[in-house]
Design a protein around this nucleic acid. Sequence first.
DNA 1: TTCTTAATTAAAGTTATTTTAATTTTTTTG
DNA 2: CAAAAAAATTAAAATAACTTTAATTAAGAA
Lengths: 131, 131
Amino acid sequence: MNNYSKQREIMLDVFKKLHHPTAEEIYNEVHKKNPVISKSTVYRNLNVLLKNHIINKIKVLTGPDRFDLIEKKHYHVICKNCDDIFDFIYPFEQNELKKSIQKQTGVTIIINSVTLYGICKKCSVSKNKEE
Amino acid sequence: MNNYSKQREIMLDVFKKLHHPTAEEIYNEVHKKNPVISKSTVYRNLNVLLKNHIINKIKVLTGPDRFDLIEKKHYHVICKNCDDIFDFIYPFEQNELKKSIQKQTGVTIIINSVTLYGICKKCSVSKNKEE
DNA sequence: TTCTTAATTAAAGTTATTTTAATTTTTTTG
DNA sequence: CAAAAAAATTAAAATAACTTTAATTAAGAA
C-alpha cells in the first residue's frame, strides 16, 4: 500500500463519520457513496489498514469486530451488557506500568490499547427492570 | 445453575489444567475424560459459567475466543503478533482510574478486565528475520 | 412412581470473515 | 504512449466459530 486506491480513500472518509463501526456498517456507508464497492473489498482493505497501523481493531464480547481510526491515543471501556464502546483517556504511559509488564511477562507494550469492561449508565438503569 | 452437572464438573476440572484455553481445546481435553460429551455442551456450559462469573472470556485479535477461571484478579497482555496471552498483576483498582472513567464515560467498571497489546519476546526476536 | 424441569446430544443453521478465481485497474518500463 | 507486470477489485464459494433446534435423557419434586 503505497498510495490509496479509490475504494480505500472512500473507506477512510467513512471512518471519520462513524463511531467504532463494524465492517458491515462501513460497507453500508461506503455503498451509499459508491454502490459498486464489494464487501470483500471492505474486509480486505480493513486488513490493509490494520497492517499499516492506520486503524485499530476492537474486539467486543459479542458480535462483530469494530474498528477505529488511530488518531489520538485513547482507550476503550466496553459495556458488558450492551457491548457499546466508550472512549476515555488516561496517563497509562507512565513507565511504571510498562516496566512492570515487561518484567512480569517479557511483553513490550507497543500500542497501549487498553480495554476495560463495565456497565454503562443506560444498562445499569434498565437492569433493575428485567431479569 | 444451582449445582453442577457431571459435564460441567469435568469442564471445571479441565480448566485447572489448561492455560487460557479455547472452546476447542476444552472440548478435546474433556473428550479424553468422557468421550460422550458433545461440543455443543461445551459451548453451552461455557456460556453458563460466564453468566455466573466463574470464568472470563478473553477476546484475542485473531482466532477463537479464550477463557479462564476467575480466581485471583489479574490482567492480560496479548501479543499482537502471535496472539499469545500473558497474565500480569497491577494495582489498577486505585479509585483514581475508576472515578476518572466514571466521569468521562458514565461507565462503572465492574470487572477490571484490562487487556493490553504488545509484542512478546519470541516474536520480537523472530520479527527481525522475516518480512 | 409419575410429573416437571433441566441438561444433553447431534445435526442443522447462522454470522462474520477469508479465500479463490476471474476480471479490471493501475503502475512501470521500454 | 503502448505493452507488460503488478496490484486491486468483484462475486461467489468456502471456512471457522459459534448458536439454535428438536429429539432424547437425566435429575429432582410431588
